[in-house]
C-alpha cells in the first residue's frame, strides 16, 4: 500500500482498522513502562518527589506543540492540494491537542503549588502554553461556527498556519516580557540540566504519549470520515424525499465519493 492509496478515505479506513490494535498495544506497553520507570526514579534534590509531575507535564507540553505542527502540515494539505483527508486530519487533531494542552497547564500549576507557593505563576512557559490553549479553543470555535465541513476546513487551515507562524513570535514575546517582570529568585521549570535517571523515564513517557496521540488521532480521523459519510448520505436521503434531484450537488464531500 503506497502513500497515494492512503489518500483514499476508504483505503484509510481499512488501514486504520488494521493498525489501530497494534498502535494501542504499543501505547499501552510504552506508557506502562514509562509509569514504572517514573515510579522508580529518585527524588530530585531540589524539587523532591514533585519531579514526578514533570514526567507527565513535559510529554503533554511537548505534544501540545507537536499537535499544532501536525495540524499545520495537514492545513498545508488542505490549502495547497485541497486534500479532503487533510481536513479530516486537522479537525480530528484539534480536540486531542487541546486536551493535552489542558493537561500540560493543569500539571504545571499542580507542580507550581509546592514549588512556587501559588497555583499560577506568570512563568514564561506556562503563559505560552496558556496562549496556545486559547488558540486551540479559538480554532475549535471556528470549526463549529460553520456546518459545511469543506469551508470550515479552509478557514481553519488559514488560522492554523497563521497560528504556526505566530507561535514562535508569541513565545519570544512572552519570554522577553517574563524576563522584564520576573523576580530572579523564582525557580524556573526544568532550569537545570537533567540527570540520566530522570531523562530515561521522561523520554519513555514522551514516546508513550506520542503514540497515544497517534492512536487517538487515527481513531478520531476514522470517526470524522464516517461522520462525513453519514452527512452526505443524509443529504442523498433528503434529496430522495424531496423528489427533485438537482444535478451537480453542493456536497463535494469525500464521504459521498467514497
Amino acid at each position: 500500500m503506497s502513500l497515494i492509496d492512503l489518500a483514499n478515505p476508504t483505503r484509510f479506513l481499512a488501514l486504520a482498522a488494521r493498525l489501530l490494535p497494534w498502535l494501542a498495544l504499543v501505547t499501552v506497553v510504552l506508557l506502562a513502562a514509562g509509569l514504572y520507570l517514573s515510579a522508580q526514579a529518585p527524588d530530585d534534590y531540589q524539587q523532591g518527589a514533585t519531579v514526578k509531575i514533570m514526567f507527565i507535564h513535559v510529554p503533554n507540553a511537548w505534544l501540545s506543540m507537536f499537535v499544532w505542527g501536525v495540524m499545520s502540515i495537514a492545513s498545508l494539505g488542505t490549502l495547497v492540494w485541497r486534500h479532503p483527508l487533510a481536513d479530516v486530519a486537522a479537525k480530528a487533531a484539534a480536540p486531542i491537542g487541546a486536551s493535552f494542552t489542558f493537561l500540560a497547564l493543569l500539571t504545571g500549576s499542580l507542580w507550581g503549588r509546592p514549588m512556587w507557593g501559588t497555583y499560577w505563576e506568570w512563568d514564561a512557559r506556562l503563559t505560552s502554553v496558556l496562549i496556545l490553549f486559547l488558540m486551540y479553543l479559538g480554532l475549535m470555535a471556528l470549526w463549529r461556527a460553520v456546518d459545511d465541513p469543506t469551508r470550515a476546513a479552509r478557514a481553519a487551515a488559514v488560522l492554523t498556519l497563521v497560528g504556526a507562524i505566530n507561535l514562535p513570535i508569541i513565545k519570544f514575546s512572552v519570554d522577553w516580557w517574563n524576563t522584564l517582570h520576573q523576580p530572579a529568585s523564582v525557580m524556573r521549570m526544568g532550569g537545570t540540566a537533567l540527570d540520566k535517571s530522570f531523562l530515561i523515564p521522561l523520554l519513555v513517557m514522551a514516546v508513550g504519549f506520542s503514540f497515544l496521540f497517534i492512536t487517538l488521532h487515527v481513531a478520531a480521523m476514522r470517526n470524522e470520515i464516517l461522520r462525513r459519510r453519514v452527512r452526505s448520505l443524509q443529504m442523498l436521503q433528503a434529496r430522495a424525499y424531496s423528489g427533485s434531484a438537482p444535478a451537480g450537488s453542493a456536497t463535494g464531500q469525500i464521504a459521498g465519493a467514497a
Partner: peptide, 25 residues
C-alpha cells in the same frame, strides 16, 4: 514509595492525566 509532603499534588496530576485520557478514549 514515599512521595513526601506533596503526595496529593502528585497523585492529583497523575489522576487528572488518566481521567482526561480516559475521557478522550
Amino acid at each position: 514509595m514515599d512521595l513526601g509532603p506533596y503526595t496529593s499534588f502528585i497523585a492529583t496530576s497523575y489522576l487528572a492525566a488518566a481521567l482526561v485520557v480516559v475521557l478522550l478514549i
